[in-house]
Design a protein around this nucleic acid. Structure first.
Lengths: 336, 336
DNA sequence: TTGCGAAATGACAACGTTGTCATTTCGTTA
DNA sequence: TAACGAAATGACAACGTTGTCATTTCGCAA
């Protein structure tokens, strides 16, 4: 059994073994049709025998590109999985791999810092997944030769952005309530610093104000069911409360449980809508109507945006991915 | 305002601008102490002025390593987020970035295929996150120069593996039931093809058999609450059923809801334990005792294992990360 | 057989960095 | 001031590819 002493087998080794020139080996890999079949076979055999694998670094150095897109996760939460899934699938489809770095827990990473770190890595463009505000958001300028797309609900002065239409989703839910005859809508928010929560609240407020309704004081939650339950206990005592929009499904469930514990029925006494449409996974026969965002689609769009902008990194666009209202039976029709 | 025409600024450009040699610029970056302070400042100024960023490809080519670890996600599910989080944090800490690829939906990817694709990318080692069986699991041989760690509950003949101790976790839960005076434990499984589900079932079976108890027929679920509910309806009719182990929290919740709908109380009539400890996020005042796996820790261990093996890729180890029983009140003590 | 255009192959430089070794400069002491 | 060793700097090759352009080989018609 022949053991291989050399650490890495190069094209040159293959060339010698196959009795051809270095360049011919290169051609076998990159433009096989330009090589005679007999030669090609000999080269393939040599590659096989030696266990040749093309060197990424040398190739990238020569080509001036990597075939990788950088992904910076400022925040890695549950919904992120579907988004990464979308990014990865779209990348795969277009022949790119992903290079990922993450903000460390506790660390405070700015966009500039993220860009600096990414630009030391093998990437042709990058995606920032940003769910909270950062200090240098407005002043940040992306490297001129590295297409940068930010996933965030906020508009950025120079970079392309992609986002769920959180505000629109919240508006949609509110209008759904109002269209079903409700005169007002209460709101239970998520964590204060979350941009999602802020946008959802903004949409809720806008929808009410558009119909000349004074939005009631929102209730502060923290995304978890217990905070929703606490909010529900408060809401149960408000006689004018017929509709509650909770910033996610978990809190919506908490609200519903509290209402029931107070002897109120959902939807007969109070209607509820949540966000993210995930309660059905945990609750059998779930009745909760919910606004669902297409995170996977979001990831796909973000990646496509980067790839489309590789040639013109300074181009700028804004993409909104709309939400979908998944209707179940937690909203009562008060009309007629 | 001076515009830069050259696409990429190289060390040579910096060197000329600073009036030093190429090598001195290199030294400023890699061994700053060996450069006189005045020179260093001049070089830094030139780098700043020209917007120099070191070329990853050239550097890697020379060094023969990338500082990146490849991650192959055969499956990207909810629990994966924490794992990726752990991998990414540990990587960061040790100065590595991650290069990620994913199995496409529908595609059937073998280990060999994954290894082939990864070895074309900038990686020094790789992690396979494998949650289902693949055809070539037993026959797969990792590239000799690329340390490979597989995250999987199965043992592999040549590669290092890292896993949650799913079997041990299930055993722990069963013994907890038995130690509390229960005479038997029913089991609701997850999807058939899931290795997690299989291992949890195996642990449950082993724990019962170790005490000379004949395991009852397991009930087939699909991870979602509705399947747990269906299982609960069946179990409610079994008079000897005092303890149910469900392969995840969602199904456990389904079981509990069904039992209640059948007029039975948890835990007074039937005790229940789940897996993953996530029900509290969705259910206020959740009482479900649950086996929790430390996915983040798992990711950290996997990454450390890769890094530790970079110098000796053919080394082999097996790491098990134990689970934790999070006690709430869904298990009744039947002893005297 | 010869000549010809096209196809196949090869020689060599270049990508931007770091390692090796030689050279220059510096600070110190005689 | 000269001489010395140490510190600082530089020249040049090398890493493993691909692009450019030159050369060889091939198939075919005269």
């Amino acid at each position: 059994m022949a053991t291989m002493d050399k650490k890495n087998v190069s094209m040159n080794d293959v060339a010698i073994a196959a009795g051809v020139s270095l360049k011919t080996v290169s051609r076998v890999i990159n433009e096989p049709d330009s090589v005679r079949e007999s030669t090609r076979d000999r080269v393939h055999a040599a590659m096989e025998a030696l266990g040749f694998r093309a060197n990424f670094a040398a190739r990238s150095l020569k080509l001036g590109r990597y075939g990788c897109i950088g992904v910076v996760m400022f925040h890695l939460s549950g919904g992120a999985v579907d988004m990464i899934d979308g990014i990865a699938d779209a990348a795969e489809e277009r022949g790119f791999a992903l290079t990922m770095i993450k903000k460390r827990a506790g660390e405070k990473m700015t966009l500039a810092e993220a860009a600096r770190r990414m630009s030391q890595l093998p990437v042709d463009g990058m995606i920032f997944n940003l769910r909270q505000m950062v200090d240098d958001f407005d002043t940040f300028e992306a490297p001129k030769d590295l297409k940068t797309v930010i996933i965030t609900p906020m508009e950025h002065p120079t970079c392309s952005t992609v986002s769920d239409d959180q505000e629109g989703g919240a508006r949609m839910a509110c209008e759904y309530f109002l269209d079903h005859g409700h005169k007002n809508v209460y709101f239970v928010s998520g964590k204060k610093e979350s941009l999602s929560s802020q946008c959802r609240m903004k949409g809720w407020r806008a929808a009410l104000e558009a119909r000349g309704i004074e939005p009631p004081e929102p209730l502060q939650g923290d995304w978890n069911a217990d905070s929703g339950y606490a909010a529900g206990l408060v809401l149960a005592d408000k006689p004018d409360c017929t509709a509650v929009l909770a910033a996610n499904d978990c809190m919506a469930n908490g609200v519903m449980m509290a209402l029931r514990d107070k002897g109120l029925s959902v939807p007969d006494d109070v209607s509820v809508i949540g966000f993210d449409d995930e309660l059905y996974k945990t609750i059998p026969n779930s009745i909760l109507t919910s606004v669902k965002f297409r995170h996977r689609e979001l990831g796909i769009r973000a990646l496509n945006e980067v790839v489309a902008g590789l040639e013109a990194p300074s181009s700028r666009s804004r993409t909104l991915v709309s939400g979908v209202l998944v209707e179940r039976s937690s909203v009562k029709d008060l009309r007629a």
